[in-house]
């Protein structure tokens, strides 16, 4: 009997030990989710940080420059000694010029590549081309900027003698090359997710591959394709280094593609590399411009989200 009592005692002690261990374990189990939640909320804090810094500094800016002058002003002359003018329309015009050229380059080429990869290419070809597109997407934008300035602009000047060293055309084309892989790969994803049974049905009715691609696959994948284009446009609007290097720093409110321009992003870079002191109107103006830029891209991202949600086809 004595031995069994001893084992019982021992086991109680062990149980107490175990219980103690469990408590520590429980504490870990309970605290881990809280710690992880705090980590996850950093991304939310980042967003709030961005929105609040932009808003506060922009408010400061609007105490010096009237709001209406900012959004309707057709002249952007912040460095003028006599009377600085802060009308953002020229910067928006510059951004839109570059974006429009980029879209004209990237959408046809991107969509054609997507159709080729998803409808025509063999597995082997796809295995070669897709990684190359990924490399193209991974090239730093500063490299593209250098390419635009030192190769594309001189090349274009041979065809368009009037083209200035800094212009909208060259960075626009290069931004187009930069967003091309994005359109190609996102659209290809949308097209490959169209089920093969639909393709087979059309082929069985005697359609050629082209007819299948244009009349069956493209309409079925339209929401994904549209979303990819809108996302690419958002990327083009926010692109900074290409336009800073090759676009110039002359804000102008017109449709001239061959002369020096300035985009919203390029203005922020120009002020940052200059010596505008902290607290000057010019310093606050980069936040106002940044806020405008932020709103543009936010709008585009929401649009892309809404398109892919609203028009998604489920198979």
């Amino acid at each position: 009997m004595a031995t069994s009592e001893q084992t019982e005692k021992l086991s109680i002690q062990q149980m107490i030990e175990e219980q103690r261990g469990k408590k520590a374990k429980k504490r870990i189990e309970k605290s881990i989710p809280i710690i992880l939640f705090l980590i996850a909320s950093i991304s939310v804090l980042t967003t709030f940080g961005i929105v609040f810094t932009l808003i506060f500094e922009t408010i400061e800016f609007f105490q010096r420059v009237p709001f209406l002058d900012f959004i309707f002003g057709k002249e952007w002359l912040p460095f003028s000694n006599k009377e600085p003018l802060f009308g953002i329309l020229p910067l928006i015009a510059g951004t839109l010029k570059v974006t429009a050229i980029a879209v004209v380059v990237a959408v046809p080429f991107g969509l054609a590549s997507a159709v080729y990869l998803s409808e025509y290419a063999s597995d082997n070809t796809r295995r070669i081309i897709k990684p190359i597109l990924e490399v193209l997407a991974g090239v730093p934008t500063i490299v593209y900027g250098f390419f635009a300035l030192t190769f594309v602009t001189p090349l274009l000047q041979q065809f368009i003698p009037d083209l200035k060293i800094f212009n909208a055309l060259s960075p626009g084309i290069v931004v187009g090359i930069m967003i091309l892989p994005m359109i190609a790969s996102l659209s290809e994803d949308a097209m490959t997710s169209v089920p093969n049974s639909i393709r087979d049905g059309a082929l069985a009715l005697g359609a050629t591959k082209l007819e299948v691609a244009v009349k069956v696959v493209l309409p079925a994948a339209l929401s994904g394709i549209m979303a990819s284009i809108v996302l690419a446009v958002s990327r083009a609007i926010g692109e900074t280094m290409i336009v800073s290097l090759a676009g110039g720093s002359t804000p102008r409110f017109d449709l001239d593609m061959t002369d020096s321009i300035q985009t919203m992003t390029a203005y922020i870079v120009q002020v940052s590399t200059g010596d505008a002191g902290f607290g000057t109107t010019i310093y606050y103006s980069i936040y106002a411009v940044g806020f405008t830029l932020f709103l543009f891209t936010l709008l585009m991202n929401w649009l892309a989200h809404a398109i892919s949600k609203r028009f998604r086809e489920e198979y």
């Binding site: 967003t47 958002s234 922020i268 585009m300 991202n301």
Partner: peptide, 15 residues
Amino acid sequence: IANLAGVPSVVFGLL
């Protein structure tokens, strides 16, 4: 997080 991925890098610079 999805929205943050779409914010231009220059705006992160301002932050």
